[in-house]
């Protein structure tokens, strides 16, 4: 049997607590990141991602404490991202017990952070997070050197945003993905800003373009509303892993149900 596709719940945390509301009746404290993580491990999550949305250096100690304590109770791989800017930041988080770290804004502002981190800690633990948004153009020629894809009757390219999706960079997301892979990033966490929060499904064209062009695993993010969206992002988008938040946090579709649905249509899952 080959490698399974991965299902990854994403936890937005601030001050060590999960920010998005959760509706688990069997948890003592739904905001407790560690209790929720242990619950997801139990449910069959293949990995976890923590994004520290406050991400300021004075709060770093709280994040490190969270990582330390998570590692005591959760025995699946987990990635930590949010506000990491230096090799020292990366080292602190990995030493505390994270398996991987993710870089977003810092990678754009200081791309050499990727090879520096990869050289010391290995490519497998340097994930680059890319927030991408569609830019529609009337014809492929209007997009200069960017990678334009025909989507239905329209043409678009994808622009990289940083600072939590607030700042456009003018960078082409696909070319950026290729660059970070060459720099030594071992995985890409690809979020569609157009789809994020809509619950209408992932950006399949974006995901597929990344999967086709890059040799590293692609974690698709943004837009999961039901198990069919996850099936599509594996089958059509060719993603290696799918990341979702609210469908798991609100217990709309628990992990075992999503995995069973994928398994039924022939997508290999760890059940």
């Amino acid at each position: 049997m080959p490698l399974t596709k991965r299902i990854i719940p994403c936890l937005d945390v601030t001050k060590g607590r999960v920010v998005k509301g959760t509706r688990f009746i069997n948890l003592r404290d739904a905001g407790d990141a560690i209790e929720l993580s242990a619950f997801y491990d139990e449910q069959g999550a293949d990995e976890l991602v923590f994004l520290d949305i406050t991400a300021s250096s004075d709060k770093r100690k709280i994040l490190i404490d969270l990582v330390e304590r998570t590692g005591e109770q959760v025995f699946i791989p987990f990635t930590v991202g949010g506000g990491l800017r230096t090799v020292e930041d990366i080292k602190e988080i990995l030493r505390a017990g994270a398996d991987k770290i993710s870089l977003n804004t810092a990678a754009v502002q200081n791309p050499k952070l990727i090879p520096e981190g990869a050289k010391i800690f290995g490519s497998q633990c340097i994930v680059t997070a890319i927030d991408a948004k569609r830019v529609y153009v009337d014809s492929p020629k209007l997009a200069k050197d960017n990678i334009v894809i025909k989507v239905g009757n329209n043409y678009c390219w994808w622009e990289v945003y940083i600072n939590g999706g607030r700042t456009p960079t003018g960078k082409d997301a696909i070319l950026w993905g290729e660059e970070v892979t060459k720099l030594g990033s071992g995985e890409i966490l690809l979020t569609s800003m157009d789809c994020d929060g809509t619950k209408n499904g992932y950006d399949l064209e974006l995901t597929k373009t990344f999967s086709d062009r890059l040799d590293v695993p692609i974690i698709a993010s943004g837009g999961a509303g039901d198990p069919n969206h996850i099936i599509d992002v594996f089958k059509i988008g060719k993603a290696d892993a799918s990341l979702a938040a609210s469908i798991f946090h609100y217990n709309e579709y628990p992990i075992p149900i999503v995995k069973e649905a994928c398994n039924k249509v022939g997508i290999l899952m760890r059940l």
Binding site: M1, P2, L3, T4, S123, Q124, E187, P217
Partner: peptide
């Protein structure tokens, strides 16, 4: 295909 192998295998 992809190297390294990252993920769950049996």
């Amino acid at each position: 295909g992809k190297i390294p192998q990252i993920g769950w295998n049996n």
